[in-house]
């Protein structure tokens, strides 16, 4: 058996190379002196300096981060409620439709979500007078809608795997259901809430299509700025931005990995 593994392992190596070489090239050429992405003309950090002086891009990034944070927080609340409903409330009436509504946003093409949300906002503004114009609020609402579905998947898995005996013990000792939920259940599913929050944050920060539909004048998000500069061709500033994003993500993953490793070790020690 052991000897036969090398074809599989070389395929695995090829797969990882395919996933990582483009990202590594982006990083390498962000330090290139020349504007031409293909010609190496010496090490330089001038694109990072230009990036930090790009007022339009910085403002867009700040808007995106704020939307992403609001989105992630509300999506975690709604997604956790939905996961509670699916795991704790059994076969309630309308469950199939509920699950359908929670699964569809995961695969629905962005253009359909974007167009439909915009048409809703236009109709609401026409009929109810709210929302008045489009921008932060409309983008956040659109993002919460699809992020909730992702959070629900993450939290639901964790909730279903959870050991129910701790909750039962608290219940037997006379704690009210809400107390049990807040003091036993929530701490136990906290890692899932955190990963759901981070996932929702990333999805929002990454979205170009939906935000383009539901944004208004004066509310340009980071992906919209990146998109318009990428359409003009290759730009080393975008390489610098990519490098910063990769650095942040890698750091976050390493921290998360170390924390969860330490967490599982302390748990074993107990």
């Amino acid at each position: 058996m052991r000897r036969r593994r090398w074809p599989l392992l070389s395929l695995l190596a090829f797969g990882y190379a395919f996933l990582y070489v483009p990202i590594l090239l982006l990083i390498v050429y962000s330090f290139n002196e020349s504007r031409l992405v293909t010609v190496w003309s010496g090490f330089s950090i001038k694109w990072y300096r230009e990036l930090l002086h790009n007022q339009q891009l910085l403002e867009a990034a700040w808007l995106s981060v704020r939307i992403a944070a609001v989105n992630a927080t509300l999506a975690v609340v709604l997604g956790t409620l939905a996961a509670n409903a699916l795991v704790r409330h059994g076969r309630f009436r309308g469950r199939n439709a509920f699950e359908l509504l929670l699964t569809a946003p995961l695969v629905m093409p962005d253009v359909i979500i974007g167009l439909s949300m915009l048409l809703l906002f236009v109709a609401m503004q026409h009929g109810l007078g709210w929302p008045d114009g489009r921008g932060f609020t409309t983008i956040a609402i659109a993002h919460i809608t699809f992020s909730t579905a992702y959070v629900a998947v993450v939290v639901r898995t964790r909730l279903a795997q959870m050991d129910a005996s701790l909750e039962e013990a608290a219940m037997d000792l006379g704690a009210r259901p809400l107390t049990v939920y807040l003091r036993i259940t929530l701490p136990l599913i906290a890692p899932a809430l955190l990963s759901g929050w981070l996932l929702a944050f990333t999805l929002s920060l990454d979205d170009l299509v939906i935000a383009s539909f539901v944004s208004g004048p004066g509310s340009t998000t980071l992906p919209m700025v990146v998109y318009s500069s990428v359409r003009m061709g290759v730009s080393p500033q975008i390489n610098a931005l990519a490098t910063l994003i990769v650095a942040v993500v890698t750091l976050a993953v390493i921290i998360a990995g170390v924390t969860s490793l330490r967490g599982s070790r302390t748990q074993r020690r107990r």
């Binding site: 483009p22 990202i23 990454d206 992906p223 061709g233």
Partner: peptide, 22 residues
Amino acid sequence: LVILPFWTSFLIRVYAWIGILK
């Protein structure tokens, strides 16, 4: 390692291929 690229920007990963395939 499979998931990590998914956390970096989708738009930027598509953009990476412009520089490669030009």
